Each structure stands twice: as structure tokens, then as C-alpha cells.
Simulated scan of single mutants.
Amino acid sequence: MGKPVIFEGDMKTHADALYHKNAFNLLASDMIAFNRSLPDVRPQQCKSLFYPEVLPTTSVIIIFHNEAFSALLRTVHSVINRSPRHLLKEIILVDDASTQEHLKVKLDDYISRHFHSSARVRIERLPTRSGLIRARIHGALNAIGDILTFLDSHCEVNVGWLEPLLAVIDKDRRNVVTPTIDVIDDNDLAYKGSDQLPQVGSFGWTMAFRWTAIQTMDLEEAKRNPTLPIRSPTMAGGLFSIDKGYFMELGMYDPGFQIWGAENIELSFKTWMCGGSLYTMACSHVGHIFRKFAPYTGMGSYFHRNNKRLIEVWLGDARAFYYKLHPDVMRIDAGDIQDQINLRKKLDCKSFDWYLDNVFPESPWPRKGSIFGFVSKSTFRFEFIEYSLAE
């Protein structure tokens, strides 16, 4: 039931020595069954819900690069074991040019032996390292399900995880939905979930994703009925479902983004500003190993370049505040963004000002006439800036 794996003595020393390979306890992962049981941590009201028999099908897309064999296969097994067969169209494993031997012939053989009859599981191998964003685009373009469901390669989906996501999209194809993301401990692989209301996604002055409490305007309804979708200003980006056609209409991810970073905020903005909605479901739970560092080499971080594109396309006049705090980003060459500006106009997207007022009124982002400053060891200085968020 998702219990921890505890090592002592020489075994702990060995486990600690392996930790850096995947940024989690590889030895513990290898000792846990691919199909281990998990505690049902959904709110009680979720357990008595019935969903329509006929729902859209989904393609589950999992990107991996040099992932641990056990973690990857446990992700796949959990999806197959806990997804209604008639709703799971396929599982696409996109190999972003892995170099480790266990992800080549050994993985091919395992997939062909174990999943030939139970579900359609296939591997798409990219010839060169492309990064998370382009690997996901590749998976989306090759998917045949009605809905795209993206998962990271070190997850375990829980009981009843899929139907709540598909049902919300079935009501409106412009709904984008994330599960409640539970923690799988990186040290002992314990599954740590709760039946309490989840946090939702947000962002701060750096534009980096962060978790926050459900906003006041949504909290009472969520407490009254936790089975309903909960509005989320942004999403973490690793685990979500979206209608395939709608994903294409939104332009998928900005094709000018490189490797990883800011794609989750961009898709969140696109969804809300261009006519869609983004929700988190308390009735859908997926465990995820949150790593303390990226164990990969040679890719670098493209966060600031991607952020520059995000800021220029989606923030309008509010970008002046961002550049005030991050002047170095202003000097970055983010490439040609005209296609993204044209897409925004084509989709008749609303402004960032509208987004703050209607979607994220509790945002720390300042409005016109706001005062901001910082506290140093010797001074307390405020600076007054005035700018318009209107576009």
C-alpha cells in the first residue's frame, strides 16, 4: 500500500551511492513491485461517484530520458491496471534519445512480452535529444486518442484517476484538467497522499510555477463539494489532460521554446486567455517523485530564454514590471515571436489584465499604481512604479 522502503547499514550506504543517478532512491525503486498497491486517498464523496460509460478515449504520453527501468515500468503498469480498458486508447512512451542500455532492447522486449494483449503500448524513439517540450509535441502528433494525457516517467496513478479527467473535458472540450499530484518520497518511495483539498497552481514575480491555496472565490464551493472541478490559475505541467484538437488549435507549445521551462505557464495562459478553463480534480490522484535536482547532463537551462518569449507574447504592458526585476532577461535574444503574436490575435485572446482580474485576483502581481520594494540588511527602500496592464 505504498509503504516506504527503509535501508540500514551497508544497504543504506549502497542506496545513497546510487541516489545521484536518478535523483531518487534507485535501490528502493528496484525492490518495489511494478504493480504495487496504493492507498485510496480520494475524498469520500469521490468514491461513490459514477461516470458515464461513454467518455472520450485517451492517449497517455510519457516522455523519458535515461529513466530508471523500475520507475518507468511502474508508471506504465499503474496506468494499465487502474484505467478502464475502453477509455485507454494507447500508451506512447517517447524516448528522448536515452543512452542507457536498459532502455533499449531490454525495454523493447519487456513491452512486447507483457503488454501485447492488455493495452496498446508503443515506443517512439527520437534520434537526437530534443528536450521535454518537443518530445511532447512529437507524442501529441502521433497520438490517436481523443484526449492527450501527459505523465512524467516516475509516476503512479491511483484508483479512479482517469474518469474524472475525461468527464470534465467531455463537458467542454476547452477544459484542461490536472489530477491532484501526490508525493512519492524520493528517499524511501513512500506514497504520501491526502483526502484534503489540493493546492492549485500559481506563479510569482519570476514567472516560475509555485503551489498556492485555493483562492477565496473558489474555496467554499470546493469545501461543499470536492468532486467538482477546482479552478487553477496555472498548472505544474507534468501531469494533465487536454483535448487533442484543442491542443492543436492552441498551437500546442510555442515551437520557439527550447528544451524545457515556461511551457506550463504558457499553456496555462493560452487556455485561460483564449477561451478555455484550467481545473484541478480532487477525485483524481497521481503520485509523482519530486526530484531535488535534474540528473541529466548536457541540456542546460533555457528557462530565461523561454520566459522572454512568454513575457513578450502574453504579458503586454505588464512586461515592464518583469523587466524591472529581471533586467538581464530583457537583453536575451528570444528569436522571432511574430507567429505567436499572430496566433494570439487569431484566437482573440484576452489580456493579462483580464486574467489577473478574473482568473487570479489573489496574484501577487502588482496592478497599476502599485508600490513594490525590498528589504536589505541596512535599508528599507520602496520604489514607486506606475504602469498600465491594459493592452
Rank of each mutant, 00 (worst) to 15 (best):
P43L: 05
Q258G: 00
I111L: 13
P164E: 07
K106A: 15
A97P: 04
F372H: 12
S363A: 12
Q196R: 09
G145P: 01
D16G: 06
I337N: 06
D353A: 07
D40W: 04
K368M: 01
N358I: 08
N35W: 09
H102C: 11
I144K: 15
D348Q: 14
K345H: 06
L88I: 09
W272M: 04
L103R: 00
I311G: 02
M248E: 15
N358D: 12
L162H: 03
D186H: 11
R291Q: 15
S241L: 07
P229L: 07
F303M: 13
I144T: 13
H154S: 14
S78N: 09
H288T: 04
N25T: 10
Q199I: 03
L72R: 07
T128R: 15
N358W: 08
S83C: 11
T180I: 05
W272G: 03
H20N: 13
V121E: 01
F360G: 00
E221V: 10
Q196E: 10
I371F: 14
T216M: 11
S153F: 02
R309T: 01
L87E: 02
E263F: 02
L267S: 00
T178P: 06
R174F: 01
I230F: 11
W205I: 09
T75Q: 05
K171E: 07
G204C: 08
W365L: 11
T128N: 14
G287L: 04
Y302C: 10
L38A: 02
L389N: 03
T271E: 02
I91T: 00
I63A: 05
D188V: 00
P164S: 09
